[in-house]
Amino acid sequence: MSLSLRLDINGEPRIVEIDDPRITLLDLLRERLALTGAKKGCDRGQCGACTVLVDGRRINSCLTLAVSLDGAEITTIEGLAGDGGVGGERLHPVQAAFIRHDGFQCGFCTPGQIMSAVGLLAEGHAGADPERVRELMSGNLCRCGAYRGITEAVLDAIAAEAGAAREDAA
């Protein structure tokens, strides 16, 4: 069996051939498309390390069959930073905030945390409330215990976005 999927991955339209309907989005990215930023921590939707955006929404890529995604737009951690010219990379504000607030230790959950935070910002339900941020980041486990820095980083990114929005309005 061979299935042909049209996917937009990090802004690039691709035709992806798969020969097995069992392949999850996570395993497609990691084992077949060399996009290893999304991590496999539990493979059961219990840890959030595999979080990516599908059509702009954060989801667990480990619990999504690739074959069901024909036509979808997928954003992974690799697609988040802008091009900063030769040799440079412009970090997404959430990425920069994670560094600034030490929102990670081992870094394994970090791509998932960051994609989740980007999804959270887009959803717009947290406001500037730390408790809401904590609640809405609770789908991403961090065994190192970097939660304080994660929360601060997300709040920082929310504030920056709100500031930018005010500037745009002015």
Binding site: L35, L80, A81, E89, L91
Partner: peptide, 9 residues
């Protein structure tokens, strides 16, 4: 290693 870790590299 911060930048490597936040970019998935």
């Amino acid at each position: 290693d911060g930048e490597l870790k936040v970019t998935g590299r």
